[in-house]
């Protein structure tokens, strides 16, 4: 009975050979990636769960609208599309490296691996800039009845709903002098910072053009936690992928694979690298697109 169960597949399953026509290391890599997919899946699904438990969620186009060197220009999604393309291209170079490995072409492997590493480093640099920009960029935000200048952190989120004019008017009364100075100077460039600093609280409030400020309330703070948590975890994967690729590069240079007669290790590193790209596709979807 046991023997007749899978007649048509006996060829693969009957033991003494890999039913997948695959070396064990690659198999383990695949299943490792499966489990890693569940780690990322759990992160992203938790994010979804929290997001669905909120009435309001910031529009990514509003949050991610900056571009290095473009000052305050409103360029929604521009920078992240650059990041996405970097990762796609680095995935392509990795494919080519693996392909070169199949052919045993050492020089090509080295070339494409090097480009992949460059791509990975470029992506990490972009992410570093984006994090830095989000954390340090200050936005006037209505928090606990006063206006504060805050960046996007794990505890505050300057991308809440737009505050009503009356709430802003009330909040201005509780706002610190320093913040008021910043608020005024941000849209009124005729008066110098020192002059503003010398003015009284009331004078400053009267100078604030509340309608022009578009002050937002403190948005859902889980946004920051998930954004930094998940992109950070992904960035950590990219980083470890780059490290793995560098090791692969060194091993290739030292002819380790040439001596072994095959480049299976490059293939496994490639799987990992593509997985990193794959995860980014979903991170991109969840944080930047919807």
């Amino acid at each position: 009975m046991a023997t007749t169960a899978n007649v048509h597949q006996t060829k693969w399953w009957s033991g003494g050979k890999s039913p997948f026509n695959m070396e064990y290391g690659k198999l383990m890599m695949w299943y490792f990636l499966m489990s890693d997919a569940f780690t990322f899946g759990a992160f992203l699904i938790s994010y979804g769960s929290i997001r669905f438990s909120q009435n309001f969620w910031p529009d990514p186009n509003v949050v991610f609208n900056a571009f290095p060197g473009a000052g305050h220009a409103n360029l929604p999604l521009a920078f992240v599309s650059v990041m996405t393309f970097i990762l796609i291209i680095s995935s392509v170079t990795m494919v080519l490296a693996v392909h070169a490995g199949h052919k045993g072409d050492k020089q090509a492997v080295v070339k494409w691996l090097a480009w992949t590493i460059v791509g990975g480093l470029a992506f990490l640099s972009c992410q570093a800039w984006e994090w830095h920009h989000l954390i340090t960029g200050e936005h006037a935000t209505l928090i606990d009845g006063q206006i504060k200048m805050v960046g996007q952190t794990t505890t505050v989120n300057p991308w809440g709903d737009l505050a009503s004019a009356s709430a802003v008017a009330d909040a201005l009364k509780n706002t610190s002098h320093e913040t008021l100075v910043q608020l005024v100077s941000s849209h009124d460039h005729s008066v110098s910072h020192e002059q503003l600093a010398g003015m009284s609280q009331e004078k400053l409030i009267s100078m604030v053009n509340a309608a022009d400020l578009h002050i937002r309330e403190n948005g859902p703070v889980a946004f920051g936690g998930y954004f930094y948590g998940i992109t950070g975890f992904h960035g950590f994967h990219v980083f470890s992928g780059v490290v793995i690729n560098i090791i692969m590069l060194i091993m290739t240079q030292k002819d380790v694979f040439q001596k072994r007669g095959h480049y299976l290790m490059i293939e496994k590193a490639g799987l990992y690298w593509h997985f990193v790209d794959l995860v980014w596709v979903f991170v991109f979807l969840c944080f930047y697109l919807i």
Binding site: D144, G145, S164, S166, A167, D170, A171, N174, E217
Partner: peptide
């Protein structure tokens, strides 16, 4: 006005 946030009023 109903717009006002309750916390703000309380403040």
């Amino acid at each position: 006005p109903a717009v006002l946030k309750d916390s703000v009023i309380a403040q």
